[in-house]
Amino acid sequence: MNTTSQSVKTAQYRFGRFTRPIVLAVIGTMKPRWNDFDPPIDEEVCAHIERDFSRFPLRAKIMILLMFHVIQWGGPLARRAPVPFTWLSPDARADRLRGLRNSKRQLPHLIFKALKTMVLIVCYSRPSVEQYLGLVRSDWQMSRLRLREQLLAVDRKRAKLPPTPLPLGAADTVHPDDILQDEPVLLPYNGE
């Protein structure tokens, strides 16, 4: 029986020299920052977006590349602002993104949403940002894993319990404390 995981190797994509500065400018404008912490994660986030991008289907790749160039050249082409996105000051870049966000038309709004989704999920997965917010996901996952290991170990020890889960309604709902009476509970539940 095989239980090892499989993963498909994909060639790592790198944004070209025209696109990369636009991506970095978008990241720099959208990434979260605080008075006492401006995370230096732009390159890191860009590398992760490139990793994700290499797994996207061709259709999505084309759309995303187009999207970045619409951001870059949309202003001059629409004769709203004569300057490409990367030439703008940080405040002006933020204004241009706000323009997309607040647009009454659906397409600019969708472009904003797609960019936001792509950039922010990666930003908030960066270890430095997680540390700053006090939300280190991997620590939480490991603590949950250890707790579950304990629960399963006790399940196994209890000779009365059948080895496989009981059918619905065959047993009362269990409280982990009932099971872990003699065992230390590693972390409390419900976030207290």
Binding site: T29, M30, K31, P32, R33, A94, L97, R101, F112, K113, K116, T117, V119, L120, I121, V122, C123, Y124, S125, R137
Partner: peptide, 11 residues
């Protein structure tokens, strides 16, 4: 990370 997209804010 998934909750971060619940709002239209940025920066």
């Amino acid at each position: 990370p998934l909750m971060s997209v619940a709002t239209d804010l940025f920066g």
